[in-house]
Structure formats: structure tokens, C-alpha cells
Design a protein around this nucleic acid. Structure first.
Lengths: 247, 247
DNA sequence: TAGTGGTCTAGACCACCGC
DNA sequence: CGGTGGTCTAGACCACTAG
């Protein structure tokens, strides 16, 4: 088999949901029925269902058939970490203009978030990102070494730094996003070509590799009327938290 | 056993992480070692690890020991759906003041989100929520029948509607949150006691029962400097999406 | 190359749901 | 009550990591 069996089962079910064969609220086939249909054991079918539950596509309760949840419009992890990949996925043309680029000592905040010693040097980048020619976001990103050195070696006009890093063997595996609302500073307003104090959606993100080593720490500010985030969660998937702001 | 074995294993590991026995980046014991320690089969231990991966506490890759990720600051699903429960969990005193309360025909937006026919009646509630006496959020919630009728029957000064509904047998199982930034309208500003056009963090939330039936649709607006949301995700947990705003 | 996690099987018993 | 999902076992083989 080219891929694994349980992934194939999960993909089949997801495809059937997207195609409309199972509407929201519909009850899915039982484990034993699918096991017979695929010639697989019950455990393999359960693994497929578990993947769909984790993605928020279906819900599951003891004794009752599994049920299709509302509109699944999920993105892959890669689309979430890379602005460029996301833009292309929604049919827009991504672009970036470098505003500032520097190798300097990390400030206290950056050291804490990147989990590096005080005084470490980090590579810092400020870019304005565009969707089909319109400025929608400012990213201010600090890269930890040795990733910073790779970024420094890239041409200034590279559109997707994330994709280039992946080509170089850097693996982004886990991210923590903190989302709140702020008023545009005068610099924000100038870069986004809007008035000062306009509401911006701020996403502060830490991305780690599979060993939990922090790779980047970014402060991204989106125009409030350009972008929204959606989160799915349930009793079994605890991905979201609400925090009192401590600033 | 009072609870299930795999949950106990998962709780033990999580407790060891929280207590500092395993720092961020530390490598956890192998499956076979834990299986021997608990007298359990390998499958049970894997189930425990899978729960921790779903919660974003650890990461897992073939061939290598599992690794502890950065600080786990997760909330239960219930704390996320109920403002009151969340407030108490962070040591603040929750309160609510009802601004408006009405039973009326749902508008187009509400029908779409609650998945009820056009013209259905919904119960609509506007409340200002306080943390230790300070106004921090406005909630504008539409409840679908028959939940609406239960809400209508409650005393006006009930602090936690969600908890009262749970007492009445309503199960909140799955939620979809859409998060963006907006400027305070004049009504928003009056209710939150701030100036007009101040940046607010808006959370629009649909909550469903275990069968996927929508129960409530809410537009919650937080003071930008009072609250933030955090999301954890990874290649295996796809809970977050970024959307172009369509308004 | 030895150890580890990823996948899969073929059973078993129980708790819960819906008819 | 029968069907269903939740839990658990005891094996097996493979792909990958790390020393």
C-alpha cells in the first residue's frame, strides 16, 4: 500500500462528507460495517475515526453512531505557519516587502519566548505582507540560531521564508498562537496604509521543532477587517484557552 | 478501577510534567517501559500518549522518544464555553448585567448559524460581563429552541446561564470560534465604559450538542487589553484556521 | 544495529443508546 | 434487548532514530 490503511479510510470518509454524501448531523456507518468493507480490523477503523475526531470533523459518544459536525473548513498545519502557502490555498497572490532586517542581541521578551540565554543574538525581520496587492499584515519575527543564519543567507525578495527553510531541512512541528486586539501604532498605520489607532488583530506565535526547540517568535498584526481566525474545539480536543491579558 | 487505566497513565505523566519532573524538551519513558511499570499492554500506553498529543502537551515522532513541549496552560472545554467558570478558574469574581432580553424572529444571520428555518423564533440576550467589578465583555447570544425556552425561564440575575443549562440536561459538546478585531460601536463603548472606536477582540461562537445540533450563536466582544486567546496546534492537531474576512 | 514508535490484527468484556 | 462505541490484551511486522 502506498499510504497507511487508516489514513485511507479517514480520507474516504472525509471525502464523502465534503461531497455531501453525509450531511451535517448525519450518522456514519458503524465500526464493524467499515471493518468488513475494508477487510480491516476494528482497531484500524477506530484509528481512522480518531483522526477525524481530532480534526473536529465528527463527534463520538459511547453507544451511539458517530455524527458529522458542521462545516469542516480546516487548514493543514503548514498552511497556518506559512502566510504564502495560506494565501495560495485561498486563491490569492502572496507578496512580501522587507521593511527591516537585522542581526542583534535579543531583548528580554525575545529571550523568554525563544528560550535562549539573555544576550543571545537573534535574527530579526520586519515584513509587510500583501494579498493580491493589498497590504493586510505586518510580521515582526525573531529567528533563533541556527535558523537565523539560514534566513540571513536568503535573498531579500524571497516570498516564502518558511518554505525555503523547509527545503533546508527545518521542520516546523508545533505552534502556540496568542491572539488579541490592539490599536495600530503610527508605524503600523504607515506600513498598512491606514489611519492610526485602527483596530488590528494581533497574533503572537511561537513555533517549535519536533523536539520542542523554539525556532521563531513572531508578532503578526492583521487589518481587523481583512482576516479572522477560526478554532474548533470539543471536550476531547482542548486546543484553545482564554487568558487575561498581562501587559 | 474508578477511572480508566489510560487516563490514569496520562494524568500521571501530565502531573510529572507540571511538577517539573520532566522539563520542556525532556524525553519521556518508552512505551515498553511504561507498559511494564503499569502492568498494561502497549496499546493502553499508546492511548495515554495519544491523549497528551491531542492536548498539545507532548510531541511524537517515529523512532525517537516522545518529547515534552513548552508550558501546558490548557483549559477544559467547560471553562471555555462558560465565562463564569473561566473567571473563577483564574481567581476572579464573575458577574453579569442583562442589557436586553427578547424572544423574536431570527434574522438571516442567526438562522444560518443556528441552522434553523428562516423566520424561526430565537431567544436573544445581551449581557455585559464583569471581572471583579470591571466591565470586560459584551455578549450577544441567540439560543435555539428548546434551549431558548429554558433561558427565558431563568431569573434575570442568574450569573452562569451555561451552568444552569447543564443542570437541566443540556450538553455542550463542540464549539467553533471565529476571532477577529473590530472597532467599538457607540453602543459597545457605552456598555464597556470606554471611548468609541477602541479596538475590541470579537469572538463569534457556535456551540453544538453531541449530535451536532446547534444550541447557541454568540457575538462576544472583549476589551482588547483585557483578554487574549491562545491556541496550540501541530501537524496532528488541526484545530485552527485563518480566514479572509467576508463581510 | 538495537531501540523506539507507527501500523495492524483478532480476539475479549463492559457501558451506554435506542428501539 | 441487540447494536454500538469504549477499553484492554498480546501478539506481529515495519520504518525510523540515534549512538
Amino acid at each position: 500500500m502506498g499510504t497507511t490503511l487508516y489514513r485511507r479510510v479517514a480520507e474516504d470518509i472525509k471525502a464523502a462528507i465534503v461531497s455531501g454524501s453525509y450531511q451535517a448531523g448525519a450518522r456514519l456507518p458503524s465500526e464493524s460495517e467499515l471493518a468488513a468493507r475494508y477487510g480491516a480490523s476494528r482497531g484500524t477503523i477506530r484509528q481512522a475515526f480518531a483522526a477525524l475526531v481530532a480534526d473536529g470533523v465528527i463527534s463520538s459518544r459511547q453507544g451511539a453512531r458517530r455524527v458529522v459536525l458542521g462545516g469542516p473548513r480546516l487548514q493543514t498545519f503548514n498552511e497556518l505557519v506559512s502566510f504564502s502557502r495560506w494565501a495560495r490555498a485561498i486563491g490569492e497572490e502572496p507578496a512580501g516587502r522587507v521593511e527591516r532586517m537585522e542581526l542583534r542581541a535579543a531583548n528580554e521578551d525575545e529571550c523568554a519566548h525563544l528560550e535562549v540565554p539573555l544576550g543571545s543574538r537573534v535574527y530579526h525581520l520586519t515584513r509587510v505582507r500583501y494579498l493580491s496587492g493589498r497590504p493586510v499584515m505586518i510580521e515582526r519575527t525573531a529567528y533563533r540560531e541556527p535558523v537565523g543564519a539560514m534566513v540571513a543567507g536568503m535573498a531579500l525578495d524571497v516570498v516564502s521564508i518558511t518554505e525555503r527553510l523547509e527545503d533546508l531541512g527545518v521542520i516546523f512541528a508545533d505552534a502556540e498562537h496568542q491572539i488579541d486586539a490592539v490599536a495600530a501604532t503610527s508605524e503600523d498605520a504607515r506600513l498598512l496604509e491606514v489611519r492610526s489607532r485602527v483596530p488590528l488583530l494581533r497574533e503572537r506565535r511561537r513555533t517549535a521543532d519536533p523536539d520542542g526547540v523554539m525556532l521563531e517568535w513572531s508578532d503578526d498584526r492583521y487589518l481587523g477587517d481583512a482576516v479572522a481566525f477560526t478554532v474548533r474545539n470539543s471536550a476531547s480536543v482542548k486546543a484553545l484557552s482564554r487568558l487575561p491579558s498581562q501587559r
